[in-house]
Nucleic acid binder design. Structure first.
Length: 528
DNA sequence: ACGAGATGGACCC
DNA sequence: TGGGTCCCCTCTCG
């Protein structure tokens, strides 16, 4: 397939590949629509259609223009220059050499030769069409057009009966950005949504209690619509903390289920507060992170704008920031600059992170943000799980693994992938007590259960995969409902067929090239 | 099977 | 500060 990099307004071009020499020395100048055209014919923009709408104009352009046959050498789909090509070469994605490294963002090399990693896979040409709608119009659209598929559903599974799913669709009208189980009563969950409401939901009955509504007057346009992102529970103070896309923090009293006090601006005005986390040992400490490239530590006793105890700067948006789960003294952040950052002690100097670990999670929109999550069982507070964005070639398949990283060394301890799960898995949660990983992608939810404790790099031979949406329906049609918690079968069901495999899915030795230059052989050594 | 579109952030002026 | 434009490994739906 020839590179498709044109806008729709450009006339249809028949590309005639030319491997031998010099016709295209005219590629020095600016990257413009016309610049790649080396042929004789000049392309002129139409002037007559000024009155027509955008779409009409575009249509007529393509109609009037006759295909031009041009002769070009290889065109890079990224920078649109000739002489090199970006994209897939077989199963490997070749980076554009004119751009900084896609992984570590440093100039001078590409992902292929990046000291932090190699390997690419799976190409995609971005949709060329522009969208003139406001990013939030869909909220409004859905109110007018009820046939738009329902969003904001809350699904509940018992991971022992993975095909028994309960879906509550009436709680939120928009995507749920954050959920937190009530630690006192895990039969209830607190949710925050882009519809601007926060709820307390009974998981058994689906009965929900609205805690707050940031858009009491309904849709007044995108500039005023508030969405809830950050959410956490502070049991000691008996409050649920919630933050919105305008930089504000709200406090909800858990007894009265009412908002108390005034909203407090904790991040740059108008910027999204992506995450909140209360310190597990020190109830007065709150950690927040946002689109203003900061993570901030706050003292709950004196919460006011500008009163943060510490500001932790990042180079780009901070997807998540968490205190360590047992001592609460470490901080782990994930930023869109492809770096996981670790601060070893909140009691020491926080001037700069103790470590920055390069990891591919700089996603191309339309994807849930990757978040490095602690293993709550790891006594040394050094094991972290996070999905990976760029794929690798695993026996010819492009897969996006889920990485386990030792944040004390930066080494990749294990990576999980499954030949049948080709989607990216941005959402990952480790079980608080058992060795279970729940992992979510756009199409499936899957549960990993390593046989031996704390040896996640061992082959996993008991797995559960839950398919969602279309894939789920397909599978159900074929197999009917299925519940196989105690099954000894080491096959699994997915995409409508059962696959048996004895292959190890966690083979850290075969991928030692990634992340770590010096691979540790004693992986379970850091375990208690 | 193919292509449009959903939709967020960076960067530029 | 605000609108316009661009964007490198998505994914689904029509």
């Amino acid at each position: 397939m020839p590179p498709q990099t044109r806008r729709t307004s450009f006339p249809k071009v028949v590309i005639d590949r030319d491997t031998d020499s010099e016709e295209s020395s005219s590629d020095e100048d600016e990257i413009d629509e016309e610049d790649d055209v080396v042929g004789e014919e000049e392309v002129t923009e139409p002037k007559a259609d000024e009155e027509e709408g955008e779409e009409e104009q575009e249509k007529s352009v393509t109609k009037k223009k006759t295909p031009i046959t041009i002769s070009l050498k290889k065109v890079c789909k990224v920078c649109k220059r000739t002489g090199h090509e970006a994209g897939f070469k077989g199963a490997t994605y070749i980076d554009c050499p004119m751009k900084p490294c896609f992984l570590c963002k440093m100039p001078g090399h590409t992902t292929m030769t990046c000291p932090h990693r190699v390997a690419t896979e799976y190409g995609v040409v971005p949709a060329p069409r522009r969208n003139t709608h406001s990013s939030l119009d869909y909220v409004f659209q859905r109110q007018l057009r009820p046939h738009i598929p329902k969003k904001g559903q809350l699904g509940v599974w018992d991971f022992c009966k993975v095909y028994e799913k309960t879906v509550y669709s009436e709680i939120h009208g928009c995507i749920l950005n954050n959920m937190k189980l009530n630690p006192r009563n895990d039969g209830t969950v607190y949710t925050g949504s882009s519809d601007g409401t926060a709820c307390c939901v009974d998981l058994e009955t689906g009965i929900s209690l609205s805690l707050m509504n940031l858009n009491p007057n309904g849709w007044q346009g995108p500039s005023t619509w508030r969405m809830i992102y950050g959410l956490d529970i502070n049991l000691d103070k008996g409050v649920v903390l919630v933050a919105d896309n305008f930089g504000y923090l709200y406090t909800v009293d858990m007894r009265s289920n009412n908002v108390t006090g005034k909203p407090i601006l904790i991040h740059k005005k108008g910027s999204k507060v992506v995450g909140l986390h209360c310190n597990p040992l020190q109830p007065d400490l709150l950690l927040s992170c946002g689109n203003d490239h900061f993570a901030r530590i706050w003292d709950m006793r004196q919460l006011e704008t500008g009163s943060s105890l510490v500001d932790l700067p990042h180079k780009r948006v901070v997807n998540s920031a968490y205190f360590s789960p047992l001592t609460g003294s470490k901080i782990l952040t994930t930023s869109q600059d492809n770096r996981i950052r670790v601060w070893d002690s909140i009691f020491g100097s926080l001037d700069s992170p103790s470590r920055e670990i390069v990891h591919s999670h700089d996603f191309n929109r339309h994807l849930t943000a990757f978040r490095a999550e602690w293993d709550p069982k790891d006594q040394s507070e050094s094991l972290v799980v996070i999905g990976r964005y760029i794929s690798e070639n695993y026996n010819g398949a492009a897969l996006h693994p889920i990485d386990f990283i030792d944040i004390s060394t930066g080494q990749l301890v294990a990576e999980i992938m499954d030949p049948n799960i080709t989607t990216i898995s941005p959402v990952n949660k480790l079980h608080p007590r058992d060795d279970i990983l729940a992992s979510g992608s756009s199409r499936s939810l899957f549960i990993w259960r390593p046989k031996e404790k704390h040896e996640i790099e061992k082959p996993i031979d008991e797995r559960k995969i839950v398919l969602c949406g279309k894939a789920e329906k397909k599978a159900k049609r074929k197999f009917g409902d299925e519940s196989d918690c105690d099954s000894d079968d080491d096959g699994f069901t997915t995409k409508g067929k059962t696959v048996k495999s004895k292959q190890p899915y966690l083979d850290s030795t075969s991928t030692s090239k990634s992340k770590s230059k010096s691979k540790s052989k004693s992986k379970s050594s850091k375990k208690p």
